[in-house]
Protein backbone atom coordinates (compact mmCIF):
# COMPACT_ATOMS: atom_id res chain seq x y z
CA UNK A 1 0.00 0.00 0.00
CA UNK A 2 1.44 3.35 -0.98
CA UNK A 3 2.12 5.66 1.92
CA UNK A 4 3.49 8.44 -0.26
CA UNK A 5 2.90 11.94 0.99
CA UNK A 6 2.49 14.89 -1.30
CA UNK A 7 5.41 16.83 0.11
CA UNK A 8 8.87 15.34 0.26
CA UNK A 9 9.88 17.05 3.50
CA UNK A 10 12.41 15.01 5.50
CA UNK A 11 11.29 13.35 8.76
CA UNK A 12 12.89 16.08 10.88
CA UNK A 13 10.53 18.67 9.38
CA UNK A 14 7.49 16.58 10.38
CA UNK A 15 6.14 19.29 12.69
CA UNK A 16 7.55 22.21 10.68
CA UNK A 17 4.23 23.11 9.09
CA UNK A 18 2.89 22.76 5.59
CA UNK A 19 1.75 19.19 6.07
CA UNK A 20 -0.19 17.07 8.50
CA UNK A 21 2.18 15.44 10.99
CA UNK A 22 -0.36 12.67 11.39
CA UNK A 23 -0.79 12.30 7.64
CA UNK A 24 -4.54 12.79 8.14
CA UNK A 25 -6.76 15.55 6.80
CA UNK A 26 -8.30 18.06 9.20
CA UNK A 27 -11.86 16.78 8.80
CA UNK A 28 -10.94 13.19 9.43
CA UNK A 29 -8.88 14.02 12.50
CA UNK A 30 -11.73 16.08 13.95
CA UNK A 31 -14.09 13.17 13.36
CA UNK A 32 -11.72 10.97 15.34
CA UNK A 33 -11.60 13.53 18.16
CA UNK A 34 -15.38 13.74 18.22
CA UNK A 35 -15.68 9.96 18.35
CA UNK A 36 -13.14 9.88 21.18
CA UNK A 37 -15.28 12.31 23.19
CA UNK A 38 -18.42 10.37 22.30
CA UNK A 39 -16.82 7.15 23.51
CA UNK A 40 -16.43 8.79 26.91
CA UNK A 41 -20.10 9.75 26.94
CA UNK A 42 -21.15 6.19 26.16
CA UNK A 43 -18.50 4.86 28.52
CA UNK A 44 -19.85 7.01 31.35
CA UNK A 45 -23.39 5.75 30.76
CA UNK A 46 -22.35 2.10 30.63
CA UNK A 47 -20.10 2.40 33.69
CA UNK A 48 -22.93 4.08 35.61
CA UNK A 49 -25.08 1.10 34.62
CA UNK A 50 -22.38 -1.27 35.89
CA UNK A 51 -22.02 0.63 39.15
CA UNK A 52 -25.76 0.50 39.82
CA UNK A 53 -25.77 -3.18 39.00
CA UNK A 54 -22.87 -3.80 41.39
CA UNK A 55 -24.66 -2.15 44.28
CA UNK A 56 -27.94 -3.96 43.64
CA UNK A 57 -28.61 -7.15 45.58
CA UNK A 58 -30.47 -8.65 42.58
CA UNK A 59 -30.63 -7.74 38.90
CA UNK A 60 -32.99 -8.71 36.04
CA UNK A 61 -31.78 -11.63 33.93
CA UNK A 62 -31.25 -10.88 30.23
CA UNK A 63 -32.43 -14.37 29.26
CA UNK A 64 -35.77 -13.58 30.93
CA UNK A 65 -36.22 -9.97 29.81
CA UNK A 66 -35.18 -10.45 26.19
CA UNK A 67 -36.80 -13.72 25.14
CA UNK A 68 -39.40 -12.62 22.62
CA UNK A 69 -39.33 -12.58 18.85
CA UNK A 70 -41.85 -10.85 16.55
CA UNK A 71 -44.80 -13.07 15.57
CA UNK A 72 -43.57 -15.88 17.82
CA UNK A 73 -46.03 -15.21 20.66
CA UNK A 74 -45.02 -16.64 23.98
CA UNK A 75 -42.21 -18.79 22.59
CA UNK A 76 -39.12 -18.70 24.80
CA UNK A 77 -36.34 -17.50 22.48
CA UNK A 78 -33.74 -15.76 24.63
CA UNK A 79 -31.25 -13.47 22.87
CA UNK A 80 -32.42 -14.49 19.40
CA UNK A 81 -33.92 -11.15 18.41
CA UNK A 82 -30.98 -9.10 19.66
CA UNK A 83 -28.65 -11.45 17.77
CA UNK A 84 -30.57 -10.57 14.63
CA UNK A 85 -30.20 -6.85 15.43
CA UNK A 86 -26.47 -7.32 15.99
CA UNK A 87 -26.15 -9.19 12.71
CA UNK A 88 -27.96 -6.38 10.85
CA UNK A 89 -25.66 -3.75 12.33
CA UNK A 90 -22.47 -5.72 11.59
CA UNK A 91 -23.73 -6.26 8.05
CA UNK A 92 -24.37 -2.55 7.57
CA UNK A 93 -20.87 -1.87 8.86
CA UNK A 94 -19.49 -4.16 6.17
CA UNK A 95 -21.48 -2.42 3.43
CA UNK A 96 -20.27 0.93 4.80
CA UNK A 97 -16.61 -0.07 4.64
CA UNK A 98 -17.21 -1.36 1.11
CA UNK A 99 -18.62 2.10 0.23
CA UNK A 100 -15.49 3.69 1.71
CA UNK A 101 -13.38 1.29 -0.32
CA UNK A 102 -15.25 2.16 -3.52
CA UNK A 103 -14.68 5.84 -2.65
CA UNK A 104 -10.94 5.29 -2.42
CA UNK A 105 -11.03 4.12 -6.02
CA UNK A 106 -13.36 6.88 -7.20
CA UNK A 107 -15.96 4.26 -8.10
CA UNK A 108 -19.15 6.35 -8.00
CA UNK A 109 -21.56 3.49 -8.80
CA UNK A 110 -19.97 1.35 -6.09
CA UNK A 111 -20.33 4.12 -3.51
CA UNK A 112 -24.00 4.59 -4.40
CA UNK A 113 -24.73 0.85 -4.22
CA UNK A 114 -23.04 0.26 -0.86
CA UNK A 115 -24.34 3.50 0.72
CA UNK A 116 -27.86 2.42 -0.21
CA UNK A 117 -27.38 -0.96 1.47
CA UNK A 118 -25.94 0.75 4.53
CA UNK A 119 -28.98 3.01 4.80
CA UNK A 120 -31.29 0.00 4.40
CA UNK A 121 -29.38 -1.79 7.18
CA UNK A 122 -29.63 1.24 9.47
CA UNK A 123 -33.37 1.53 8.94
CA UNK A 124 -33.82 -2.22 9.58
CA UNK A 125 -31.90 -1.91 12.84
CA UNK A 126 -34.02 1.06 13.96
CA UNK A 127 -37.20 -0.84 13.10
CA UNK A 128 -36.03 -3.77 15.23
CA UNK A 129 -35.29 -1.42 18.09
CA UNK A 130 -38.73 0.17 17.76
CA UNK A 131 -40.29 -3.28 18.02
CA UNK A 132 -38.22 -4.19 21.05
CA UNK A 133 -39.06 -0.93 22.83
CA UNK A 134 -42.76 -1.40 22.07
CA UNK A 135 -42.63 -4.96 23.35
CA UNK A 136 -40.88 -4.04 26.61
CA UNK A 137 -43.26 -1.12 27.08
CA UNK A 138 -46.19 -3.51 26.76
CA UNK A 139 -44.63 -5.54 29.58
CA UNK A 140 -44.61 -2.45 31.79
CA UNK A 141 -41.03 -1.31 31.27
CA UNK A 142 -40.36 2.38 30.63
CA UNK A 143 -38.50 5.33 32.12
CA UNK A 144 -39.67 5.69 35.70
CA UNK A 145 -41.68 2.46 35.70
CA UNK A 146 -41.93 0.04 38.64
CA UNK A 147 -42.06 2.57 41.46
CA UNK A 148 -45.31 1.63 43.21
CA UNK A 149 -44.17 -0.06 46.45
CA UNK A 150 -47.54 -1.72 47.00
CA UNK A 151 -47.31 -3.74 43.77
CA UNK A 152 -46.78 -7.45 44.44
CA UNK A 153 -43.61 -9.32 43.47
CA UNK A 154 -45.53 -11.03 40.67
CA UNK A 155 -45.54 -7.79 38.63
CA UNK A 156 -41.79 -7.95 38.04
CA UNK A 157 -40.49 -11.37 39.05
CA UNK A 158 -40.71 -12.71 35.47
CA UNK A 159 -37.79 -10.40 34.56
CA UNK A 160 -35.58 -12.31 36.98
CA UNK A 161 -34.11 -15.77 37.14
CA UNK A 162 -36.58 -16.29 39.99
CA UNK A 163 -36.29 -20.07 40.14
CA UNK A 164 -32.97 -19.54 41.87
CA UNK A 165 -33.44 -19.50 45.64
CA UNK A 166 -31.11 -16.60 46.44
CA UNK A 167 -32.81 -14.45 43.78
CA UNK A 168 -36.27 -15.27 45.09
CA UNK A 169 -35.23 -14.40 48.62
CA UNK A 170 -33.98 -10.95 47.58
CA UNK A 171 -36.91 -10.05 45.32
CA UNK A 172 -39.45 -8.72 47.87
CA UNK A 173 -37.00 -6.18 49.33
CA UNK A 174 -34.86 -5.24 46.30
CA UNK A 175 -36.59 -6.51 43.15
CA UNK A 176 -38.68 -3.46 42.35
CA UNK A 177 -35.80 -1.00 42.73
CA UNK A 178 -33.61 -3.22 40.52
CA UNK A 179 -36.30 -3.48 37.82
CA UNK A 180 -36.82 0.29 37.94
CA UNK A 181 -33.07 0.95 37.60
CA UNK A 182 -32.66 -1.65 34.86
CA UNK A 183 -35.33 -0.15 32.62
CA UNK A 184 -34.16 3.43 33.22
CA UNK A 185 -30.66 2.49 32.06
CA UNK A 186 -31.88 0.27 29.27
CA UNK A 187 -34.07 2.92 27.66
CA UNK A 188 -31.56 5.73 28.24
CA UNK A 189 -28.57 3.88 26.78
CA UNK A 190 -30.27 2.10 23.88
CA UNK A 191 -32.14 5.36 23.25
CA UNK A 192 -28.91 7.34 23.11
CA UNK A 193 -27.43 4.72 20.80
CA UNK A 194 -30.58 4.71 18.67
CA UNK A 195 -30.33 8.51 18.37
CA UNK A 196 -26.80 8.02 17.03
CA UNK A 197 -28.04 5.43 14.52
CA UNK A 198 -30.81 7.81 13.45
CA UNK A 199 -28.42 10.71 12.86
CA UNK A 200 -26.02 8.29 11.15
CA UNK A 201 -28.75 7.26 8.71
CA UNK A 202 -29.47 10.95 8.01
CA UNK A 203 -25.77 11.67 7.37
CA UNK A 204 -25.60 8.63 5.10
CA UNK A 205 -28.61 9.85 3.13
CA UNK A 206 -27.02 13.31 2.73
CA UNK A 207 -23.76 11.75 1.52
CA UNK A 208 -25.67 9.46 -0.84
CA UNK A 209 -27.48 12.45 -2.35
CA UNK A 210 -24.18 14.30 -2.79
CA UNK A 211 -22.64 11.24 -4.40
CA UNK A 212 -25.53 10.87 -6.83
CA UNK A 213 -25.28 14.59 -7.67
CA UNK A 214 -21.58 14.16 -8.42
CA UNK A 215 -20.40 16.58 -5.73
CA UNK A 216 -17.54 14.32 -4.65
CA UNK A 217 -16.64 13.41 -8.20
CA UNK A 218 -16.12 17.14 -8.92
CA UNK A 219 -14.23 17.55 -5.68
CA UNK A 220 -11.87 14.80 -6.79
CA UNK A 221 -12.22 12.57 -3.74
CA UNK A 222 -14.78 10.76 -1.58
CA UNK A 223 -13.43 11.75 1.80
CA UNK A 224 -16.91 12.60 3.10
CA UNK A 225 -17.85 8.94 2.63
CA UNK A 226 -14.86 8.04 4.75
CA UNK A 227 -15.87 10.52 7.48
CA UNK A 228 -19.48 9.35 7.77
CA UNK A 229 -18.05 5.84 7.57
CA UNK A 230 -16.01 6.49 10.71
CA UNK A 231 -19.15 7.68 12.47
CA UNK A 232 -21.14 4.68 11.29
CA UNK A 233 -18.49 2.20 12.42
CA UNK A 234 -18.36 3.92 15.79
CA UNK A 235 -22.11 3.39 16.17
CA UNK A 236 -21.54 -0.30 15.44
CA UNK A 237 -18.64 -0.31 17.90
CA UNK A 238 -20.83 1.12 20.66
CA UNK A 239 -23.47 -1.50 19.94
CA UNK A 240 -20.85 -4.23 20.51
CA UNK A 241 -20.42 -2.87 24.06
CA UNK A 242 -24.14 -2.27 24.67
CA UNK A 243 -24.80 -5.83 23.49
CA UNK A 244 -22.28 -7.23 25.97
CA UNK A 245 -23.40 -5.10 28.93
CA UNK A 246 -27.15 -5.49 28.58
CA UNK A 247 -27.72 -8.80 26.88
CA UNK A 248 -24.77 -11.01 27.78
CA UNK A 249 -23.30 -10.13 31.15
Amino acid sequence: MSQATATTAPETKMWGGGRSPFNVSYGKMMMWFFLLSDSFTFGALLIAYGTTRFFSAVWPDANQVFKSFPFMGEANLPLLFVSLMTFILIMSSVTMVLAVHAGHYGDKQGVIKWMLWTIVGGICFLSCQAWEWTHLHSEGGWWGSFINATDPVSTFQHFFNHHKESVQAALPAHGMQATHDFFNYFFTITGFHGAHVTSGVIFNIVVLINTVNGTYERRGHYEMVEKVGLYWHFVDLVWVFVFTCFYLL
Binding site: A6, N23, S25, Y26
Partner: peptide, 10 residues
Protein backbone atom coordinates in the same frame (compact mmCIF):
# COMPACT_ATOMS: atom_id res chain seq x y z
CA UNK B 1 -6.94 19.02 1.79
CA UNK B 2 -5.96 16.85 -1.12
CA UNK B 3 -2.34 16.52 -0.07
CA UNK B 4 -3.20 15.60 3.49
CA UNK B 5 -4.82 12.25 2.87
CA UNK B 6 -3.52 9.19 4.52
CA UNK B 7 -1.91 6.69 2.22
CA UNK B 8 -5.01 4.66 1.54
CA UNK B 9 -6.89 7.71 0.25
CA UNK B 10 -4.39 8.42 -2.41
Amino acid sequence: QSKLYSGIMQ
